[in-house]
Design a protein around this nucleic acid. Structure first.
Lengths: 351, 351
DNA sequence: GACAATTGTGCAAACGATTGCATTATGGAT
DNA sequence: ATCCATAATGCAATCGTTTGCACAATTGTC
């Protein structure tokens, strides 16, 4: 259908080899005459020649493609990661194929299969699960691979992720410093990497400062807004409600905020709110939310750097990177005093 | 490196043809014996055979890949489109390659080149610009193509987009119905398809109801938050400020909201706010914003449907679809009365 | 017992590029 | 005149599949 080297060869009278060399080799190496070069290039343009990367990839055993597998591309965190990775990879002359697994492990498996069938040169994957045997297999097949946004000691693969534990501790320590001791945690999906590590940080911070963990203050079960809404409502009705809420993800925080407003509870005067994750709209909420920001740009850069390294050296030592998050302090936390706490409680009863 | 059909052939004693047929043909057609099938399948599994789509694509002249080109994947609208398209395409057995052009026409051009070199079976493109000659060329080369999120009579390509003009009119008519006559429009990037069509709807609605267009009320120059912030500040300082603001995009609205809050101007009591585009966080802002929602799911479904149609029939009639947006009424618009307007004005002076 | 139909499998030519190894022509050195 | 280096190009194998055609063996039909 489309023009091939052969067509150009026929038209110019040169051999396919010569055409190939002129068009892709920069042709210095083979000392093609100027005259031939211009002639070939001209006819290539005339005929609208377009490289066939399938043929090249097959012959060269290299595709210049990187596979990217993410649980949910509509999640601002992942779409930002996507964008940064794209830019970073472009610099190195690589393109990438994205797969959205919709947080489904079976789709993830089939995505991996597909992407390997495409003979990508490398793979970046933010796995959904806690189960990594299928990923280990890729590594065992010597396909360059880096995991992002989660790491596990149970697999021997390169990884770069954000230190969720530390992030939680930043948030919690700040709340504690401001005088809070009754701090609720609204979870995301239990069992997910993000949730478990963030929960761990929550507990650790409490433990470090000698505050007992109150199981009634750990609530919730997924990363959606409705979860934040319902659990906040529930928390506000407790006999002894928390003075602060820490949510495992930003969408949860949206729901929490909504619940507070509907209950006539003011943030931060009546209750404080901090959240993990910090997408573009957080500063524009009312009030602007204090949030744990993940270093997305750095994460992407590192992921690509580690991937390149692995593509050069299949058998190097495993590399795991844990990046430091950052607490962005805005206006959703109040310094606490006992009196405020009481006012707060009465307010609740009213509703 | 990896196992090929040949390897399996060698191991089982059958020919490459037989292996191929068993593994991909469902082999009914060629009446391969049960015995052979199981034997082949077993060794394929043992050897960890993985299809090489490069070779297959080369031979079959079909890749089962669709290229997707978007201006900014981190934009919630496009990442949602992405996700919906992915799901839709998966149903048909297609994968897709995404390119983020970063709103840069030259990157767009090179992305198109790259994606065609990959011999995708089709192309979905949300072009950045108003200039479509490069896109027309693809169509001329008989590559199935559908444009999304913008359409133009100047190119002869299939397209599906949201009726921005109508969307703007929905928003404006609502504001007008609520008694507003001084309505400002904060633009996005002038010259962009999204902006011009939304602006057109703004003007049209005013015109239809006999309200004169006041040029001082059309302000702004890009889709970012800072633009919304600065322009709102400016609008509030006018001698005769608007009673309502309509923003061309949601991020602009975030900035506008922020400016109002900082100026002590309440929404909607002191000024009303409506915006185009309606991502997940809009209902959780304070106040929940009345916004024009784009039918993203429908858009994606239609885009894929039209693409499939075009892949089957290269020479059919051009098809352009214009989908209807929807106004989600929340709490950012107040019914206006002259008295309120005066109170409002005094409030402004105070700041 | 002759012939046709069916069953099960293999041969070999594509698909479009890359590249090591010729090959030819030319000029210079001896 | 002989030999060698160099310049400019061509040959042909290869990458891993798919698939039209051929072919042998078996079964069925009259």
């Amino acid at each position: 259908m489309s023009t091939t080297l052969k067509d150009i060869a026929k038209k110019t009278g040169f051999s396919v080899s010569t055409i190939s060399r002129v068009l892709h080799d920069n042709s210095k190496k083979y000392k093609i005459s100027e005259e031939t070069q211009t002639k070939v290039q001209q006819t290539a343009k005339d005929l609208g020649y377009r490289l066939n990367t399938l043929a090249r990839g097959l012959r060269m055993q290299k595709t210049y493609e990187i596979g990217l597998i993410v649980p949910d591309i509509a999640n601002p965190f992942f779409s930002a990661v996507c964008k940064n990775l794209a830019g970073e990879l472009r610099k190195g002359g690589y393109n990438f194929i994205v797969y959205d697994t919709d947080k489904d492990l079976s789709i993830e498996r089939s995505a991996i299969k597909k992407v390997l069938e495409k003979r990508v040169d490398g793979l970046i994957i933010a796995s959904v699960g806690q189960e990594f045997s299928h990923i280990q297999k890729i590594r065992d097949a010597n396909i360059p691979l880096v995991m992002i946004d989660r790491c596990s000691d149970s697999v021997d693969v390169d990884s770069v992720s954000v230190d969720n534990v530390k992030g939680s501790m930043f948030a919690m320590n700040y709340l504690i410093k401001e005088g809070h001791t009754r701090i609720a945690f609204i979870q995301g999906t239990p069992g997910s990497y993000a949730n478990e590590t963030r929960l761990q940080g929550y507990k650790l911070a409490l433990h470090d400062t000698g505050i007992a963990v109150d199981k009634h203050l750990i609530v919730g079960n997924d990363f959606r807004a409705m979860n934040g809404y319902l659990e906040t409502k529930h928390l506000l009705k407790l006999a002894n409600p928390p003075t602060a809420i820490f949510t495992a993800g930003n969408i949860i925080a949206l729901g929490a905020l909504d619940a507070c407003k509907k209950a006539g509870v003011r943030v931060p005067q009546d209750i404080s709110l901090v959240t993990f994750d910090d997408p573009v709209f957080t500063p524009y909420l009312s009030p602007p939310l204090t949030a744990v920001e993940q270093p997305i740009k750095k994460l992407s850069e590192m992921a690509v750097a580690i991937l390149y390294r692995r593509m050069k050296n299949h058998h190097g030592m495993r590399k795991t990177l844990l990046l430091e998050p950052k607490l962005n302090i805005r206006s959703s936390v109040a310094r606490i005093s006992t009196r405020k706490n009481i006012i707060h409680s009465t307010k609740i009863e009213k509703n």
